[in-house]
């Protein structure tokens, strides 16, 4: 009690002393309370049978019914597995691509052409996900798509990509990395550029070839960065990619078993099936799971490299 009192006293004092600084935090405080903290209270919807007449507060409680439905219908397992599967492949392919880009960009000779290539590889980050939808339509559309136009020209059979669930792991991996690899490589490039050049000079004097330098110096020195980035990828394994999946797949029900991830499922339960309770239950499950993962990962990262921990 006494401790609490002094704490409150300190806070009040600081509010008075640093009035202007606290005032500068007002917009951020309003923003995060209104758009992040108040909606957190809405997780109660996961335990309710929501209807628009009664609203969030007065809709009847149903306990764990929503979760039970999700478990029994097998839906939860399906979307969880899809989300994890896609994220693992995205990250693994991304790691190899980003590392290769970074190693080559930092070590190949020449300047202008290299700068140009790096710019082109970074360009997709600027292109909106809606345009990605336009790309996939252009390439894979059954009747007019560039792929089928090409196959027909060669005298081969047309492919029905949008009707075939098996193609999508590859296609999504391609576009996810298309969009992010330039951005992701920046971190590795910055880390490599920060290495002491004397190490390489010494290796050069000792007669190490450039391949040996990469295998014996660059990669081992990058190891902490790689581990930390992989761990944070793990903490996001149940998250995201809504914009990617929704623009490319949209509401194509033939592909749902293969391409429905948590975020698209939640979105459809809000906008198509009007199943607010079920959607909120999935959302809460994703958030809680994500929180546990990131706290665990952060704890591991702290053990490996104190400086890279998030908190």
């Amino acid at each position: 009690m006494g401790l609490k009192k002094t704490n409150r006293h300190l806070l009040l004092n600081d509010l008075k002393q640093n009035r202007s600084l606290w005032a500068m935090l007002i917009p951020a405080a309003i923003f995060f309370i209104a758009f992040n903290y108040i909606p957190m209270g809405g997780v109660i919807l996961a335990f309710k049978d929501f209807n628009y007449v009664d609203g969030i507060l007065r809709s009847p409680m149903v306990g764990f019914e929503n979760f039970k439905f999700l478990l029994l219908s097998g839906k939860l397992w399906n979307i969880t597995w899809n989300t994890i599967r896609y994220n693992i492949v995205f990250s693994a392919v991304g790691l190899v691509l980003q590392l290769s880009i970074a190693i080559f960009v930092t070590r190949v000779g020449g300047r202008l052409y290299k700068k140009f290539l790096q710019s082109v590889i970074f360009l997709p980050y600027f292109i909106s996900f809606v345009i990605l939808g336009s790309f996939t339509y252009n390439i894979f559309n059954y009747e007019f798509g560039a792929l089928n136009a090409f196959l027909t020209k060669l005298g081969l059979e047309r492919l029905d990509v949008f009707g075939n669930p098996d193609c999508w792991l590859g296609i999504m991996t391609f576009f996810a990395n298309w969009k992010w690899m330039g951005w992701g490589s920046v971190i590795y490039i910055a880390t490599i550029t920060g290495f002491d050049p004397q190490i390489y000079e010494a290796a050069e004097v000792d007669g190490a070839s450039i391949w040996q330098q990469i295998r014996k110096i660059t990669l081992p020195m990058l190891k902490p960065t790689i581990i930390v980035i992989c761990l944070f990828d793990v903490s996001r394994i149940l998250k995201g990619n809504f914009e990617l999946f929704y623009n490319i797949i949209g509401d194509n029900a033939t592909l749902f078993n293969a391409t429905d991830v948590i975020d698209t499922y939640v979105f459809r339960s809000l906008t198509r099936n009007f199943n607010v309770g079920i959607g909120s239950a999935v959302g809460l499950y994703q958030s809680l799971f994500g929180l546990v993962l990131i706290v665990t990962v952060n704890w591991i990262v702290k053990k490996i490299d104190e400086n890279s921990a998030l908190f």
Binding site: N36, M40, G42, L45, S287, G290
Partner: peptide
């Protein structure tokens, strides 16, 4: 790290 999810936010 934690959010209420899309649906409570939307409502």
């Amino acid at each position: 790290m934690f959010s209420g999810g899309l649906i409570p936010w939307y409502i």
